[in-house]
Design a binder for these strands. Structure first.
Length: 424
RNA sequence: GGAGGGUUAGCCUAAUUGGUAAGGCGGCGGAUUUGAAAUCCGCUGGGCUCUGCCCUUGGGGGUUCGAGUCCCUCACCCUCCGCCA
C-alpha cells in the first residue's frame, strides 16, 4: 500500500509509475474523486458530531439540575439520524476507495529498467562456469528416476500432477540443502531463525500484500478461513504487525524454512514435466526490517548472501534485474538469481530478492520511532529466497551428473550427506 | 466441541444507577547538577481546513440525546471439561 500522498501531492509520479508497469491509469481519477468525497463526508460528520457532543452535555446538565430536556433530546434524535446517514455513506466511499487503493502496485525504484515484460529484464552479471560434458547431459527427471531418488509416478497417484516424492539419497539431499541454507544464513550471514505456521489468516495475507491480487494462487481451507502460505515471506511480514519497533533494534534479519504451497492456476501446460514448477516445495526465506535510509544497502547485503550460497555450491548462475513490466506487485526493485540447468538447457530462477520499501510495512503497520525527530515512521522490508530447494536440486543433478549416471555431491553438502556421490 | 473469566495508549492499571477515559511505569525534552542519581515541569494513540475540532477502551454491529459501561457477533488470551499425536 502506498502513502496517500501519492494521490494528493505526488499524483504525476503515481501515474508515471503505473504507466511504466503497464497498468491502466484511469483508476487514478476514480481514486481522486473518492478521496475528495470521503474528505467532504469526514468534514460534515465532524461538524455534526461536534454539535451532538455539545448538546448532549447540555442534556446531562439539564437533567442533573432536574429540568426537562425532552425538546433538546428530540432535536438531537434528528442530528443522530443524520450522523448515521453520513457515516454509512462515508463507510461506503471508504470501502470503495480501499478496494481500489489496495490494487495499486508499488512505485518502481529509479534504477529499474523500463520494459514491458520478462523479455526486457536485464542480466546484471554471470558467475561461475557452465560445465563441459563429454556426453549429452540429461534432464533431472531421467537422472533422478534412474537413481531411484525421485518418483513422479507414485506422487501423481496420491496427489496429482506437479507433485514429487524424494526417496533415499534424494530425500537426504533435500534435507541437506535445507539444513545447509539455514546453517549458512544463521551462522555466517547473521539471520535469526524462525519457524512459523504455514497456515495463516486472511488478514495476514492482506498485510503481506498477497491479497487481494493473488487469491487464485493460494490454497484455501474454507472451513477455518486459513491460507496455506505460498512463501514464508507471508509469515515473516506478519511477525511485527501493528508494532512499533525499537530504532536501535533495526535492522532485524530473519530466516525461515517452510514448505510453500502454490496452485499454479495460471500456468497450465507450462513446465509440466519434472520438478521445475510444483505445488509444494521447500524454501528458506530471508527477510529484513530496516530503516528507510538503509534499505538499499541492506538489499546489496542480501544479494551478496544469496550469491555466496550459490558460489559455495559451485553452480553457474546469473543475476537478472526485473524491468518495470515484470516487477512484482509489492516490489520497488527485484533481482532474480537464475541457475544454469544443462540437462534442460535453460536458466532456472532459484531466488528473487526484493526491496518493498515501505509498501508492505504500511499494510502490516510496522513502524519505528526515530529518536532524532520523535516521529513514527514506517520501516522498509526486504525479502529474498535463500534458497528454494527444488530447482537447486535440479541444478545439482544436472551440473554434477557423470557419464555413468551417478551424481557427485557438492563439497559443502558432503558433511550433511555422509557420501561423495550418489550411484545407481 | 462445551463452560466460565478476560482484552483500556509502548507496558501496568482505574472509571457510582450509562453523562463523554483518571493514574502509575517506561521513554523523550527541559529545570537543577562538575557529572549522575534523586526531585520538579512539560510531552508521550491517529487524523484534519490545527488559537481549534473530530476520532480512539480487541474488530464489527445494535440500543440510547449520550456507551469503556447494556445487547448481538467475531477474533485472540487464560482456566476447566471433552477429544487427541
Amino acid at each position: 500500500m502506498l502513502d496517500i500522498a501519492y494521490l494528493r501531492s505526488k499524483r504525476e509520479e503515481l501515474i508515471e509509475a503505473l504507466r511504466k508497469r503497464g497498468y491502466d491509469v484511469s483508476i487514478v481519477d476514480k481514486l481522486v474523486e473518492l478521496d475528495e468525497r470521503r474528505r467532504k463526508l469526514v468534514k460534515e460528520g465532524d461538524d455534526l458530531r461536534k454539535l451532538r457532543n455539545e448538546k448532549s452535555e447540555e442534556v446531562a446538565r439539564i437533567k442533573k439540575s432536574g429540568g426537562d430536556a425532552s425538546e433538546l433530546i428530540a432535536e438531537l434524535k434528528k442530528v443522530s439520524r443524520r450522523i448515521k446517514e453520513v457515516e454509512d455513506e462515508q463507510k461506503k466511499v471508504e470501502a470503495e476507495f480501499r478496494e481500489l487503493w489496495l490494487q495499486i502496485p508499488n512505485i518502481p525504484h529509479e534504477s529499474v529498467p523500463l520494459g514491458k515484460d520478462e523479455t526486457e529484464n536485464v542480466v546484471v552479471r554471470y558467475e561461475g562456469e557452465k560445465p563441459e560434458f563429454s556426453f549429452e547431459p540429461k534432464p533431472h527427471w531421467d537422472i533422478g528416476e534412474a537413481l531411484g531418488i525421485i518418483d513422479f509416478k507414485t506422487a501423481g497417484k496420491m496427489s496429482g500432477s506437479r507433485f514429487f516424492i524424494l526417496k533415499g539419497y534424494g530425500a537426504l539431499l533435500e534435507r541437506a540443502l535445507i539444513n545447509f541454507f539455514l546453517d549458512i544464513n544463521t551462522h555466517k550471514h547473521g539471520y535469526f531463525e524462525v519457524m512459523p505456521p504455514v497456515l495463516v489468516k486472511e488478514e495476514a495475507a492482506y498485510a503481506s500484500g498477497h491479497l487481494p491480487k493473488f487469491r487464485e494462487e493460494m490454497y484455501y481451507i474454507d472451513e477455518d478461513g486459513l491460507f496455506l502460505v505460498p512463501t514464508a515471506e507471508m509469515a515473516l511480514a506478519n511477525l511485527h504487525r501493528d508494532q512499533i519497533l525499537d530504532e536501535s533494534a533495526l535492522p532485524l534479519n530473519y530466516v525461515a524454512y517452510t514448505p510453500c504451497f502454490r496452485r499454479e492456476a495460471g500456468s497450465y501446460g507450462k513446465d509440466v514435466r519434472g520438478m521445475i514448477r510444483v505445488h509444494q516445495f521447500n524454501k528458506v526465506e530471508l527477510f529484513k526490517y530496516t530503516k528507510p535510509e538503509n534499505s538499499y544497502k541492506e538489499l546489496e547485503n542480501m544479494l551478496e548472501n544469496v550469491g555466496h550460497i550459490l558460489k559455495l555450491l559451485k553452480l553457474p548462475y546469473r543475476v537478472v534485474q526485473l524491468c518495470t513490466g515484470d516487477l512484482g506487485f509489492a516490489a520497488s526493485v527485484t533481482y532474480d538469481f537464475e541457475v544454469w540447468a544443462p540437462g534442460l538447457g535453460r536458466w532456472l530462477e532459484v531466488s528473487s530478492v526484493s526491496n518493498t520499501e515501505d509498501f508492505q510495512a504500511r499494510r502490516a503497520n510496522v513502524r519505528f520511532r526515530r529518536k532524532s525527530t520523535g516521529k513514527l515512521e514506517f520501516v522498509h522490508t526486504l525479502n529474498g529466497s535463500g534458497l528454494a530447494t527444488p530447482r537447486v536440486f535440479i541444478a545439482i543433478l544436472e551440473n554434477y551428473q557423470q557419464e555413468d549416471g551417478s551424481v557427485v555431491i557438492p563439497e559443502v553438502l558432503r558433511p550433511y550427506m555422509g557420501i561423495d556421490v550418489i550411484k545407481a
